[in-house]
């Protein structure tokens, strides 16, 4: 057991959450991060889906990494990822139809999410299944973290709600407060992510 949770493995898991965050530092998987974050709920669902798919594709590729011929590895990786995404898309359609309609093509676009290919190439091809699993979960959660932050800000300021529940009380509206319609526009998510990266970099620089 102690080997499974050694310091190295802990670092593999926790680094992507902050110091080596896939979105803020490695600049991977931006597309879906921007498009699904106008509200909190799709952001959470998307973050979880990506976490699960990253973790399991990492495990599968890491298990068969010694048998994959080097020249066709990209195709093999794509097929594994596409199969997993198909499963997740079908599950979402069956159990969370509203969210899957909201996410529309972006569920399919998890296939082309650079986080997946990036982690498969950089980590799973060289490491064992357990480390790869942790790495996948870590990176997926690091990605989900940014999505949730952006989704939180946009839903709170754009709609005055969180997960569909009203947060900003009526008396504030009566006093003249208005929802910021700008926040619901796609353009704002870019600017918020830019600010998140700004904050992330200035904090981490202080730590060093």
């Amino acid at each position: 057991m102690s080997k499974l949770f050694s310091n190295e493995n802990k670092a593999v898991f926790s680094n992507p959450l902050n110091l080596n965050n896939p979105i803020a530092v490695q600049v991977l998987g931006i597309c879906s991060a921007l498009a699904v974050t106008s509200q909190l709920e799709p952001a959470i669902v998307m973050g979880l889906s990506v976490t699960i798919i990253t973790a399991f594709s990492n495990v599968i590729i890491s298990l068969i990494r010694k048998t994959i011929p080097n020249r066709i590895r990209i195709i093999v990786q794509l097929v594994v990822v596409a199969a997993l995404v198909t499963i997740v898309a079908q599950i979402l359609k069956a159990f969370a139809y509203d969210v899957s309609v909201q996410l529309s093509v972006y569920v399919g676009l998890i296939i082309t999410n650079c986080i997946l290919m990036g982690r498969l190439e950089a980590f799973a091809m060289q490491n064992g299944p357990w480390e790869s699993f942790l790495d996948g979960i870590g990176n997926g959660l690091g990605y989900a973290l940014i999505l949730v932050i952006v989704g939180f800000i946009r839903e709170l300021l754009g709609f005055g709600t969180l997960l569909g529940f009203q947060i900003v009380p009526d008396c504030v509206y009566n006093a003249g407060y208005m929802n910021n319609g700008m926040m619901t526009m796609p353009a704002m998510s870019l600017i918020i992510v830019g600010c998140v990266i700004w904050a992330h970099r200035s904090i981490n620089k202080e730590e060093k």
Partner: peptide, 23 residues
């Protein structure tokens, strides 16, 4: 550009402004 904003951060904000123009 402020140091922590250089590179990626300012690029994001630029793209955001361009997206607003395209709106």
């Amino acid at each position: 550009v402020p140091k922590p904003l250089q590179g990626l951060g300012i690029t994001f904000i630029t793209v955001g402004l361009m997206a607003m123009a395209f709106m």
